[in-house]
Measured scan of single mutants.
Amino acid sequence: MDSLVVLVLCLSCLLLLSLWRQSSGRGKLPPGPTPLPVIGNILQIGIKDISKSLTNLSKVYGPVFTLYFGLKPIVVLHGYEAVKEALIDLGEEFSGRGIFPLAERANRGFGIVFSNGKKWKEIRRFSLMTLRNFGMGKRSIEDRVQEEARCLVEELRKTKASPCDPTFILGCAPCNVICSIIFHKRFDYKDQQFLNLMEKLNENIKILSSPWIQICNNFSPIIDYFPGTHNKLLKNVAFMKSYILEKVKEHQESMDMNNPQDFIDCFLMKMEKEKHNQPSEFTIESLENTAVDLFGAGTETTSTTLRYALLLLLKHPEVTAKVQEEIERVIGRNRSPCMQDRSHMPYTDAVVHEVQRYIDLLPTSLPHAVTCDIKFRNYLIPKGTTILISLTSVLHDNKEFPNPEMFDPHHFLDEGGNFKKSKYFMPFSAGKRICVGEALAGMELFLFLTSILQNFNLKSLVDPKNLDTTPVVNGFASVPPFYQLCFIPV
C-alpha cells in the first residue's frame, strides 16, 4: 500500500510540474494548442506526416506557434517570411542545433551535424575549407563525379535492359564520391566492405524516417530501456565508426604531411598542428563522427533524390523527352556531361530543381535551437528552445509555385524558357546551418541524371499514369515507394 501511495504522489508531482512548466512558459512563447500533461501535443500531431499537421496548425495559430513534445516546448516556423527572418536575418541567433537524443547517444555531441557552439563552428569551418581545397564546386571533385558517372552508366548497362530496382546502384554512385573525398578511394560496386557500408546507410535513412524515431526523440528514456529499431540505428553508426577508425589508422601509418590526399589526411594534419593548443576540438573521436556525418549527409540524401527523380521522369515521359532533346543538342553522344553545360541547359536545370522542390526530401529539416534569449515577432523565446522549420511550407508555397503539388519544371523557367532562380528554393535548409555539401549534391544530381539520360531511355513496367509517387515514409525524410524500371541503351 505504501508503495502505491508513493507512486501516486510521484505521478501527481510530475503532472503538477508539467502543468507549471507549460503555464509559466506560455506567456512568453508564441500561441499554440493546449498541451496535455506529460505528453504535450503529441496526440494532435500525425507522426506519419508531421508536415501536414504543421500546415493545419498554422492555419489556426499563424506562421509562428508553439507545440509541446512531452514536456519540451518547440517553436514552429511556417512559411517563407518566418523562416527567412529566423535563419537568414537572425542567422546567428537561430544557428543552434536542437535536442536530438538519439544523435546524442550516437555521437556524444561530436561531428558537424549535431554539434553546437565553438566545437560546431570550428569543425564546420575546417570541413568547408577542406572540401573547397579539394575542389568542391571546382574541377578536381567534378572529375571524381564524372568518373563515377561513367562507372554508374557501365553498371546500368550490365542490367541488359531487364527490369531492376535502382535503389542499390543509385546509392553506390554518391557513396563512392564521398569515399573518394574521405578515403581517396572508390570501391567496386561488388566489394563486400562497400556493400556493408551501403547497407547500413540505407537502413539508417529508413529507420530515421519512421514514426518510432519521432517518439524516441521526444521521450528519450525509451532509447535506453525499450527495444526497437533505434538500437539497430545505433549499432549501424557504431559499425561505421569502427570502419572509419580502421581507415584512420591506415592513414596514420602512411600519411605524407607534405601531400595530403583526402579529408582524413587533412584532419590528422590539423590534429598535429593543434596538439599544443589544448583542449582542441580536433580529436580522433571528432574525426570519426565528422566522417560519419559526411557519409550520412552525402550519400543517402543524394541517392534518395536520384531514385525519386527517375520515378518522376517515368511518370512524366514528356519531361524526359525534353531533357534528352536538350542533352542531344548541347552535349551530344561523344563526350561526358560537365558542369559548364548546365548554363546552356535551362530546361534540365529546371527539372533538377523541380525534383528537389517537389519531393521535399527533408520536410522539417533537422531541429534548430536559439543560442540566446531572443525577441522574435513580439515573442520571447528562451535560450536553448528547439525550433522546428517547415521546409515544406517554403518549397510548396502556392504563391511562389502555382499548383505546388504538381510536378512542373516551369516553376523554374521564365516566359522565355530561361532558368529562373527562386529564393524559396531551400531543399538544403538556409542560413548558417545550410548543408555543407550543397554544391557537391547539386553537381552530382546534374551529372548523374544527364549521364543516365544521355545513355538510356527509361521504360516503366506499368502505365506511367498508374505510377504512385507518394512517399512511403514522410517523417525525417521523404522516401519514394518501391518501383522497377528498364534502362534501355540509346
Rank of each mutant, 00 (worst) to 15 (best):
R144H: 07
L362T: 14
I207H: 06
V248F: 06
L4H: 09
R307S: 04
F65L: 03
T450P: 00
N418C: 09
K28F: 13
D256S: 10
S280G: 07
L361G: 03
E253R: 13
V370G: 04
M426P: 01
V490L: 13
G109E: 05
T283C: 12
I141W: 05
T320Q: 15
N217W: 14
F219T: 08
N196Y: 07
D360G: 09
Y358R: 03
R335S: 07
F446I: 01
W120D: 07
P427K: 01
R186Y: 00
N378C: 03
K138W: 11
P101R: 10
I141H: 03
R342G: 04
F226M: 12
S51F: 10
E328H: 13
S303T: 06
D373M: 02
N466T: 13
T386L: 08
K383A: 13
L445C: 08
I215S: 05
V490D: 05
V237E: 07
G109Q: 06
N107F: 04
K200T: 06
T348W: 02
T229R: 14
C151E: 09
E154T: 09
T299M: 09
C172Y: 04
R335G: 07
C486M: 12
K206Q: 10
V370D: 01
G137W: 06
W120A: 14
M269L: 14
I264L: 10
T301W: 00
Q484A: 05
G32V: 02
R97T: 01
I45N: 05
Y483T: 01
P489G: 02
D408M: 03
N217F: 07
P37C: 03
G40F: 03
A238V: 08
L77Q: 00
G27A: 13
L29E: 02
R329I: 10
S51R: 13
S451M: 07
R186P: 01
K48L: 07
N217I: 05
K273S: 13
N133A: 09
L380I: 15
F69N: 06
K52C: 09
G109N: 10
L11Q: 08
D143F: 08
F428C: 04
S393A: 07
M406G: 10
D265K: 04
E328L: 14
C338I: 09
Y80K: 13
I223Q: 10
Q22V: 14
V64C: 14
G79T: 06
S390M: 11
L268I: 07
S254V: 13
C338P: 01
E81M: 07
S460R: 03
Y483C: 02
I488W: 04
S280M: 09
L467H: 02
C151S: 07
R97C: 04
T450S: 10
I50S: 09
F263I: 06
P163G: 03
K84F: 06
L453H: 00
R21C: 14
F487Y: 01
F183H: 03
D341Q: 03
L388H: 06
Y308R: 01
E246S: 10
F448D: 00
L458Q: 00
M129H: 12
G117L: 05
N196C: 11
P63G: 11
V355F: 06
G109Y: 10
F428V: 05
S365F: 05
K138F: 11
K273I: 08
L7G: 12
L67I: 12
L90N: 15
I213H: 15
E122R: 08
I169P: 02
F456R: 00
T167R: 07
K465E: 15
S429K: 04
S24K: 14
I141G: 01
L11H: 08
Y308D: 00
R97I: 04
I39A: 10
N56V: 11
N334Y: 12
D360R: 07
Q192Y: 06
L87A: 11
Q192H: 11
N133P: 07
S286V: 11
L395R: 00
F126K: 03
G137M: 10
P101V: 08
Y379H: 10
C179S: 04
I205F: 15
K465C: 09
V248M: 06
E400R: 08
L306E: 00
F448M: 04
T34I: 10
M426N: 06
G111L: 00
L388G: 03
A103W: 15
F65G: 01
M255G: 10
G46Q: 14
N116A: 06
P37M: 04
K52F: 07
P464S: 05
P402Q: 11
E81F: 05
F412L: 02
L413T: 03
K190P: 02
E203A: 06
D373Y: 02
Q252M: 12
R97A: 06
S451C: 09
S390C: 11
E438C: 00
R124M: 05
T392Q: 15
I215E: 04
K375G: 06
K247V: 07
V323H: 01
E142T: 03
L314A: 08
L77E: 00
G298E: 00
L449S: 05
I213Y: 15
S24Q: 13
F110V: 10
K52M: 09
E300L: 15
F446Q: 01
M129P: 08
S140I: 09
F194P: 01
Y347R: 02
P63K: 05
S478G: 06
T450R: 01
S365N: 14
R307A: 03
S286R: 06
Q44A: 10
K465G: 10
R157M: 09
S336H: 11
V394Y: 03
I223L: 14
E354M: 00
H396G: 09
I141N: 03
C338M: 10
F476M: 15
N403G: 08
T301Q: 00
D224G: 11
K270E: 11
T469C: 11
F65P: 00
S343N: 13
L287M: 05
E199W: 05
N378K: 10
A161K: 07
L361M: 09
A86M: 07
F263L: 12
E438V: 10
I42V: 14
L440A: 02
Y379M: 08
H78P: 01
H396T: 15
F110L: 14
E104H: 10
K273V: 08
E328C: 14
T229Y: 15
I50D: 06
L54S: 05
Q44N: 10
K270Q: 15
V323Y: 04
C175T: 12
E405G: 11
P101F: 07
F134R: 12
L201V: 10
T305G: 03
K420N: 07
D360N: 15
N217S: 15
H411G: 02
C435F: 00
T283L: 07
I47V: 13
C10D: 04
L461S: 10
F412V: 00
G437R: 01
K465R: 11
I434D: 15
N133L: 08
Q454V: 03
L77I: 14
L29I: 05
